[in-house]
Amino acid sequence: MINFNNDVDFSHAHFHGIQTSITHVQFNGTKTNFSHAKFDTESVSFLMTHFNGTNVDFSYTKFHGSEASFNSTKFHAQKINFAHSVFLSDKILFYEASFMGEINFGHVQFNNFTSFGDAIIDKNAEIEFNSDLSKVSFYNVKIGTNMKFGLYTKWNKQNKIYDEIRLEENDSNGLRLIAGIISQYQGLRDNYEYNFNYEDAGKFFIRESEVLRNYEDPNPFENKTTFSNKLKSAFSKSKKIEEKKSEEEILKIKKKSRFHRYVSIPFVYKHIADYGESYKKPLGILIIIFTYTMLSSAVLQHVENNLDILDAFAYGTSRALGAFVPYLDVADTTDKPWDYAVKAIALPLTGLSFIALKRRFERKYRNTVLGN
């Protein structure tokens, strides 16, 4: 390993050629400066390089080519600055990199797939992201409260992380377990709640629940012939259906069956209450059912019994109240099947509204008491 024990200044340097390789190098000086440098080579590699000392500066640096790699790089200086850097490479890799000290990724452009997979962030480190992270993966990274996501941090629509998008595009290369995606959502949710950003925290919780509803983890220890494969083997002309799946097939992340995705309690819970995050949806359904019950009863009484419009609406309102509230029968009529159905629906919908409202009040209380 090559050691630089004094300050190193590559600021405004311009690197040309096929490859720039600064690997297995140790920078121990007070300041290591790559600010405003341009890497126009096909690939850039800082593999297993150690950045120690006081200050490491990559601000306003531009990376071109097919790959910019900081794999297994140790960023252990007191301050590391990537602010306003531009990564134009096809792949940007910080795989298994380790971070200590203060790290600034503010206003960095990650133009293509960027992986911090299996990166190690020291518990005493302070790392700030204030950039577009819509193409960034934190797979198997422990996202703690020492990671800060600023106001300019941008995710995909509904806070969907890039690894879930890769799953949807059938690109599960490197995504070994659903648990790695779930842990990202859980870490981001806890992080945003810790910083009192409850709206985005709720979106991450919804995305986490959606992944659990739609996907299942592969089981590398299960290598059995399924019942369906036995049937195929029995009725196949060739009768040469393999009894064992290949390792690649076993480890492939798969979607759950259509029944689990579309005919299940989680599916209903998602669409009527956003997994307990929305009070407006169940409340809106309650209002629609109440209004329908009231209007239909009023119109029926007006047409069949020639009741005055006001009397008919009064009857419809009392009928709707009686149908909505269990054991309450303010209308002088016998309950019909519709009334029993409304009572059965109204109670859980009311409960879902209260759950969401309870969460909001708890968060507001926490924000008021702990935020001051």
Rank of each mutant, 00 (worst) to 15 (best):
T317Y: 14
G17H: 12
E128A: 15
E277L: 12
I206C: 04
R258G: 12
N104I: 14
I289K: 01
G106P: 03
D335E: 05
G53F: 12
S264A: 00
S21Q: 02
Y198M: 03
N191Y: 01
A346P: 01
H24E: 08
M1G: 12
D9E: 02
N140M: 07
S278M: 11
P337R: 10
K79Q: 15
K157F: 11
A119V: 11
Q301H: 14
I241V: 14
H302W: 13
Y269P: 10
N55L: 12
D335T: 06
T114E: 14
I272R: 01
Y152F: 01
E164A: 11
A331L: 11
N159L: 13
R258H: 13
K135F: 06
E242W: 04
T41D: 14
Q186Y: 09
S43N: 00
G17W: 10
F259R: 11
A201S: 03
I272Q: 02
K245G: 04
Y262S: 01
G180L: 03
L175D: 06
E193K: 05
G29V: 06
W155S: 01
N306L: 03
L347Q: 08
D90N: 12
G101N: 05
S236W: 05
E247S: 12
N111T: 04
T291Y: 08
N111E: 09
N146C: 04
T23G: 01
L88K: 12
N71L: 12
H24I: 04
E169R: 14
A312W: 03
V303M: 04
A125K: 03
S297W: 02
G101K: 06
V369P: 06
M147Y: 00
K160I: 11
D200W: 12
N130Y: 06
V211N: 02
V342G: 00
L47C: 07
Y262W: 04
L212R: 13
K240Q: 13
D311E: 05
I345K: 12
D339M: 08
F58S: 00
G29D: 06
K239E: 02
Y152S: 08
L357M: 15
N372E: 14
E210S: 07
D274W: 10
N104E: 05
Y185N: 09
K252W: 04
K256H: 03
M147E: 05
S69A: 09
N140K: 12
E168H: 14
T30Y: 04
R213D: 06
G65T: 01
